[in-house]
Design a protein around this nucleic acid. Structure first.
Lengths: 195, 195
DNA sequence: ACAGAAAGAGACCGAACGTTCTCCCTCATC
DNA sequence: GATGAGGGAGAACGTTCGGTCTCTTTCTGT
């Protein structure tokens, strides 16, 4: 069961369990404070299996962030798919971010949390965070540029700054109020471009 | 030298060196990833001395955050002292935050970084972060309330959200652009209340 | 001069860390 | 039926972790 279907796949039941478990625990409890023993125990996998699929803990962390990156890209695409106008798409993305903040188990931004544990700019984990953030900034800026004629760089940074603040505060203040403030702030930016 | 001056003081050269070193290293590299060996080595203090002044690493972490809290309160007071009007004080506080972000060695908000490593809301470190944040939110909201007549709760949260986003992004994007966006956002809020 | 606290020096503890290893079993494919 | 990869089980590696211990030196206030 669960055998590769021939191609150069990297799928297996054990690997998938490993990645799912690592994602859950790393996001909920942090990275440095969780040992590989915890992960292999909860993934019901042996130590040897972990090191057969990953070169070490670091590669598992990178896979975790890759997983998170895919999730967020899918979330953004899903939000955009429901709207035609650029303004509608920005609002939809903001709403989907707010939905995440309100969800049970929300623990802030996986990337901001990870980078707090990897301050060294040369570290692969740090670089993965930077890459994800650059993609998000570019995506938002490009979307805003389609609303009105004004340059969108500043507004893009503004929206991302609100997002970062909302993600950071979402599990430290009342999530409901945080979402209200965030959505209001994004709405101001969108409206200022629509005018 | 460096003897207590009689009262129930908690000052000593070794303790001070310990706290200064811990603050520097914890802020620059994170908490879980640095061991007490690093700290006592760089503080030029023996292991026994650490445990004579602190019950353990956790108390050292709490002392580090206490240090950071005092620093920020002093920074806010200094900024406010130079301005008379409430609006001027808010602008001054924002400028002083921006100055911090532009400073060399800026590694984000010590409290946001710490809470990323201590997600458990019941943990003393997590609670210390919440307490600091509540003070800051209250301070900003109270200041904004003195500008105009509109309720200031929402605007206070808005400014804190911009600050959180700016502090998070300040060491991940170009600090100069981050500060520009941050100061612009705060200015918008202040002006909307002055009108 | 003397008592006593602060600090240095360093051995030591058990536990957890990430990692590597061997041995055996299962099972799809040729 | 033989082959060989994937996985389970678990011992073991050396290192580092946070924390405790004893012993000695230094220096202050009385």
């Amino acid at each position: 069961m669960s055998r590769d279907t021939g191609g150069g796949g990297s799928t297996s039941a054990a690997r998938s369990r490993l990645l799912t478990t690592a994602t859950r625990i790393f996001y909920a409890e942090g990275i440095h404070s969780v040992g590989v023993d915890r992960i292999i125990a909860e993934a019901q996998v042996t130590r040897a299996t972990l090191y057969r699929h990953f070169t070490g803990k670091e590669e598992l962390v990178l896979a975790y962030l890759g997983q998170a990156d895919l999730g967020i890209r899918a979330q953004v695409e899903a939000a955009r798919a429901g709207e035609e106008s650029a303004a509608g798409q920005v609002r939809a993305v903001a709403r989907s971010i707010a939905d995440g903040i309100r969800s049970p188990g929300f623990r802030g931004c996986a990337f901001l949390n990870a980078v707090a544990e990897y301050p060294d700019p040369a570290h692969p984990v740090h670089r993965a965070v930077l890459a994800h953030r650059q993609w998000f900034l570019d995506t938002v800026t490009e979307l805003l540029a389609r609303i009105g004629d004004a340059p969108a760089d500043g507004d893009g940074r503004h929206v991302v700054m609100l997002r970062d603040g909302a993600m950071a505060a979402g599990c430290l203040f009342d999530p409901e109020l945080v979402c209200e403030t965030f959505l209001g702030g994004v709405e101001d930016v969108v409206r200022s471009r629509e005018a």
